[in-house]
Amino acid sequence: MNHDATKNGEDLKRQLQADLDDSFDEELEMELDDSRLERLLEGVEKPGTDGEAGPGMDRHFYFKELFRLQSELVRLQDWVQNQKLKVVVLFEGRDAAGKGGVIKRITQRLNPRVCRVAALPAPSERERTQWYFQRYVSHLPAGGEIVLFDRSWYNRAGVERVMGFCSDADVEEFFRSVPEFEKMLIRSGIVLIKYWFSITDEEQHLRFQMRIQDPMKQWKLSPMDLESRRRWEQYTKAKEAMLERTHSDEAPWWVVEAVDKKRARLNCIHHLLSRIPYQDVAHAPITLPARVRNPDYLRGPVPKEMYVPAVY
C-alpha cells in the first residue's frame, strides 16, 4: 500500500512538472516568435541604431519575473471575483507599440470568464449615429469582472481625428464629454486604469519592417497602419492633446516606455497589480471525490475513423 502511495505521489509530481514545463513552453513559443522576426530582419536597415542593439533583458530573469507576476494576477483575479470588483483597463498607443503582447501575458493564466478582452472593430453605419460612447458601454464589466480594452473610446482622439473620420466639432465634444463619462464610471464603482504605450519613431519603423518581412505577421499591417506611419507627426500632436486634455486626478494616464518589449510587459503588469489593493481569498480545501463505478457500465467502442490522425 505504501509502495502504491509513493508511486502515485511520484507520478503526480511528474505530471505537475510536465504541466509547469508546458506553461514555460507556451511563453517560450511566443518569445521565439519575436526571435524569429529578428532573424528575418538580418540585412534590413535599422534607422537610427547604426546596427547597435540596446542591452536586452536576461531571458531567465524575464521568465522568472513574468511567471511570478502572472501568479499575482491569479491572486488579483480571485480577489476581484470575491469582492465583486469592476475593473476596466485601457491600452492605447501607436500601431505596433506592444499593446497586444502585454494583453496576451495578462490574460494567459486567467479565467476568460473573469478577465476578457474588448477589441472593437470599426463602427457600423448604425453605431455611427449613436451616442459616441454607447458601443463601449455594452462591454463594461459586471461585478467580479476585468475588461481589457485593446484600444478604446480614445479612438476619437487618435485615429478618427488624424484620418479625418470625424469633424473638429466631434473631437471637441469628445474632449468635453470624456472626463464626465469617466467620472460617471468611477462613481459607479468601476476601477479605471489607462495606459499609453510609448515607442520611438525608429522603433515603430523597425517593427513595421519586421511585419513586412514575415508572411505570418503581414496580416497585422492594414492600409490604415501604413498610413499611420506616414502621419507620425500628426499622431504625435493628437496624442499630446489627448494626454493633456484627458489626464485627471480621477482618471490619470500612465505612460509605459515600450521600446523594450520585455521590460514594458513586466513594468505594466507590476504597475497594474499596484493599482488594485488585493489580498488572499480563503477557500475551503478541495477534495477530489471518489469516482462512482457501476459494474453494469461498459464503455462503447469509438470507430477508428473518428480519431484525428496521429501525424505527430
Rank of each mutant, 00 (worst) to 15 (best):
3 H>Q: 13
6 T>C: 07
8 N>S: 12
10 E>S: 11
11 D>F: 04
15 Q>D: 11
20 L>V: 04
26 E>Q: 07
31 E>C: 02
36 R>T: 06
37 L>G: 12
39 R>H: 02
39 R>F: 03
39 R>L: 13
44 V>T: 05
45 E>S: 11
47 P>I: 10
51 G>P: 00
53 A>N: 06
55 P>Y: 00
55 P>Q: 00
58 D>G: 07
60 H>A: 15
61 F>Y: 10
64 K>V: 08
70 Q>R: 13
72 E>G: 01
76 L>C: 00
79 W>E: 03
82 N>C: 08
86 K>V: 08
86 K>I: 12
89 V>N: 01
94 R>D: 06
95 D>H: 08
96 A>K: 04
96 A>H: 02
96 A>S: 10
102 V>T: 15
103 I>C: 05
106 I>E: 05
109 R>D: 10
109 R>K: 14
117 V>S: 10
118 A>G: 11
119 A>L: 07
120 L>G: 11
125 E>I: 13
126 R>C: 03
127 E>I: 12
127 E>F: 05
134 Q>N: 13
137 V>W: 14
142 A>R: 13
143 G>Y: 04
145 E>T: 01
146 I>T: 06
154 Y>R: 05
159 V>Q: 00
159 V>R: 00
165 F>P: 09
169 A>Y: 01
173 E>M: 06
176 R>N: 09
180 E>R: 14
184 M>R: 05
186 I>F: 10
191 V>D: 11
195 Y>R: 05
200 T>Y: 00
201 D>R: 14
208 F>C: 03
208 F>M: 09
215 P>W: 06
216 M>G: 09
219 W>D: 15
219 W>A: 15
222 S>A: 11
223 P>I: 00
224 M>S: 06
226 L>T: 04
231 R>K: 15
234 Q>I: 00
234 Q>K: 15
237 K>L: 13
241 A>F: 01
252 P>Y: 15
257 E>Q: 14
259 V>P: 00
260 D>N: 13
261 K>R: 10
263 R>A: 08
268 C>G: 01
271 H>Y: 10
272 L>F: 12
274 S>M: 08
275 R>C: 14
278 Y>G: 09
282 A>L: 05
284 A>H: 10
287 T>F: 09
290 A>F: 02
295 P>V: 05
296 D>L: 07
297 Y>S: 01
298 L>E: 15
298 L>G: 10
299 R>K: 13
300 G>E: 15
301 P>K: 13
305 E>T: 01
306 M>K: 13
306 M>E: 13
311 V>N: 06
